[in-house]
Amino acid sequence: MIGLIQRVLIDHLEIHHGKAAVESIAAQAGVLSLGRRIDTDYDDADTLAFFAAAGDYLELDFDALMTLYADLFIKWTRQHYPIFFSMADSAQAFLGRQPAIHASLGAGIRDPHLRDRVSDKFRVVEKSELKLIVDYRSANGLCTLYRALFLRVLEEYGQSGELVETRCQHRGDEACRFDMTFAEESAA
């Protein structure tokens, strides 16, 4: 998984719980060397284990951890990638561009197979003024995180909307499908 994902969580834990807490959580997750580079792909299992240990440390269930993380992620990226936000004038514009942004984050991966896996993780299926459908295909199965990010992005742009996950890898589908609609009055 791209290092930026865990970097956001590491930064939060260090700032609010200290370096020792980070090391403890890493040890709890069985991660010997915790990567911090945002341009490097780290082992998926290590990242997921670190997230699970962090949840335990923070005493948050998975959904709550994802909600927290979504907020952290938006704040972190708004600080370091402000242009991505200013480029989008609405939640649907931001989320419509999200697969391309995700691909840009994985562009530094040297292994073309891994790079393609990152690039192809998200795919816009349908896009219109008030509707967006995105497919998500990853063995990590982090559709909960996407749902949380959807709500946080709506909040970021002061919009309302709805996400229905019409397909889900956890239900045996090949990919998760997010069918998102955005309220008309907030779209302008």
């Binding site: 945002i38 341009d39 370091h80 990638y81 840009s104 562009a107 530094g108 040297r110 790079r115």
Partner: peptide
């Protein structure tokens, strides 16, 4: 690929986005 040893996020971001452009 552009690589940087820097721990600076800004430089990593620069390398990362250059890699994105190259990949594009």
């Amino acid at each position: 690929h552009i690589h940087t040893d820097s721990d600076e996020i800004a430089l990593q971001k620069l390398a990362q986005l250059n890699n994105f452009v190259l990949d594009s």
